[in-house]
Design a protein around this nucleic acid. Structure first.
Lengths: 201, 201, 201, 201
DNA sequence: CATGAATGAGCGTTCATTCAT
DNA sequence: CATGAATGAACGCTCATTCAT
């Protein structure tokens, strides 16, 4: 009898992690369309694509795990940064800088995420809407706090939260398209921009 | 012998336009992956997918024509707006508002473009890098003019041009994902943001 | 422009017939389960299983055509025999003898039919219930006519029609299981049995 | 060392029975094609399809055990009924009624049997021919006795035995296809029919 | 005895592309 | 110029079976 983790054997859990990692790499490099079970299995060193079907109910389950892994990793890195700060302005700056830093250090993760979002016909509703909404709510909360504390000027918090979220989307796209970008300069200017956008004049 | 346009007969040119238009629609609606020759042919009212192969060397040539068509249409609508203004600040605002307006009125064009950028393995190098570089140069030129004329504060024109370009990318993504967005408000805030980002305090 | 038959080209119609014929043979010989597109294509001399998908929307459409072909052939051979007789007793005998004769001369057709009925999860509702109901109605009509004309004794026509239909099912099973059966004797006895079952004592 | 039954330990024998029972249920419900080891294992509450391979040499051995189980159960219920009667006519009626009653009370058994007969490529020769021949001999014996005792009219006993056997096949098919059949009426008519078929006028 | 991980062949289907007519 | 038939590779997935533990 092997010990288990939430109904999964040790080896089962390890295999799943291994396959998810290989899937991320392959999707990031070849794109979602070309990320077939055959390619993923080859990357993971598996003998047969059928082994992936053995460990995941179907392709959607695997892709869902990929998305979950990316969001879990990102959340674990970005959220704490924003929690350990005093003012709302610092929280906002922390969130923006943390997000861009995460995008920078996890480019293949983010490339895979974008590929899935654009390649899978129901990706948004299935895996993205919920975390995006919650992320948006987090930004809006910080903005509202800043207004309550008198740090920020008056503006419709929801609309500005959306715009800040979109700034980061644009930054991510840039990062993926221009790999040799001067990250320090880019991050600094972007943080400044966000600051100007919300701070009291 | 029919009269020709650049080596193409009238009917040939018409057929190509028709196929490109159908391809844009299908890619925008079904995504790049599902935009098979069969689907495009059906949409264009053609009798056979083979006819597309007859008129285009291969799928890449067709996709390249789609990209070219989108950029040509966008350039024709956005550039004149920015040319007929006096100050650099007005040019910048005109460019930002014009871009978002174009995204808004040509959603299927832009959706197709994004699908191709994300779905085709070599889309960026082949079709996107050149027009993007030239667009970036245009923005940078306006920014430099603004600094020369004393309208804008000092900043590294290239980095800020990149950021402004990315703001628009983020806006485009938002537009495609949130179709019922309040465009007027969003555009206004975005333009303001760009203004704050570059204007002398 | 090729001439057409109901929207189908000559060659298209010919190919479909050829594939249906090959499917009947393969299903009869290997059983429904092993009757893969690969086997059918090999039997039909096609270069690729994909060609079957080219001519039929999916496997169900092909199987449906097989069933239709068998029923059409059977109906064309059995019905006229029963129409050209005077009395209900003769019609019944004609139907029974005709059915068994058809089963005998079209064993692979009937074996394929039985394989589909047993192998396809929704075969009965999709393709068999309707023709079976209509066949049953035909038998019942003959029985009712026999009673009206005073040839047959009184009995519940529906129940007896069902039993006669089941007699033929049993005969078909026998035929498929015992290929070297003495058909003449078997048919004679079966016809006698049906006669005894309904005739006035 | 555990005590054995024919080379099998107690647990071994119990496991085999359990697996055979699950196989019957699954084959009856899903059909032979979909009755995979995975489904049977799930139904039997086993942890792995591999366990079935462990207890049975291969799928054929399991299927053979299923057939044997059904025939054993049926023989144990039908034969005694026919043994405890005086006349051949009563024996025949008893056999017919007993068979239909068994079919009726063991529908999943019979459905599984039919699925195997139609789904397995060599089912008939391997598992069905022998018991069928012996059953046929039993019917023929009753018919011959009836003729010797002057109960039955003259007829070729073998052919009529075959036909009576086929009547039951037809009844079984009907039963499986029309679950809400009026069994009492159907059985009565069928028994009458058999009586008319053999009795002296 | 039992388990779960692994294997590799085969399934139906889609696809861009070719080619004779 | 246009057509429709054909091709063969690749896709996600299921299956009976094997085997180390």
């Amino acid at each position: 009898m092997q010990p288990k983790r939430g109904g999964l054997t040790f080896t089962e859990a390890a295999r799943r992690k291994q396959i998810v990692a290989a899937a991320i790499e392959v999707i990031a490099e070849l794109g979602y369309v070309r990320a077939s079970f055959a390619q993923i299995a080859k990357r993971a060193g598996l003998s047969s694509p059928g082994l992936i079907s053995y460990h995941f109910a179907n392709k959607d389950e695997l892709i869902g795990q990929v998305v979950a892994e990316v969001y879990a990793t990102g959340g674990a890195l970005i959220r704490p940064r924003a929690d350990n700060v005093a003012t709302a302005a610092d929280a906002l700056r922390s969130f923006v800088e943390g997000s861009i830093a995460f995008y920078d250090t996890h480019r293949s993760y983010m490339r895979a995420l974008m590929q899935i979002l654009n390649g899978h016909p129901e990706a948004r509703e299935r895996w993205f809407d919920a975390p995006n909404t919650s992320e948006l709510a987090g930004i809006e909360e910080v903005l509202a706090r800043g207004q309550r504390d008198g740090e920020f000027r008056e503006f419709p918090t929801h609309t500005v939260a959306v715009i800040i979220r979109d700034l980061l989307s644009g930054a991510l796209l840039r990062l993926l398209v221009t790999p040799d970008l001067d990250m320090a300069a880019y991050t600094r200017e972007m943080a400044e921009l966000c600051h100007f956008a919300v701070a009291k004049p």
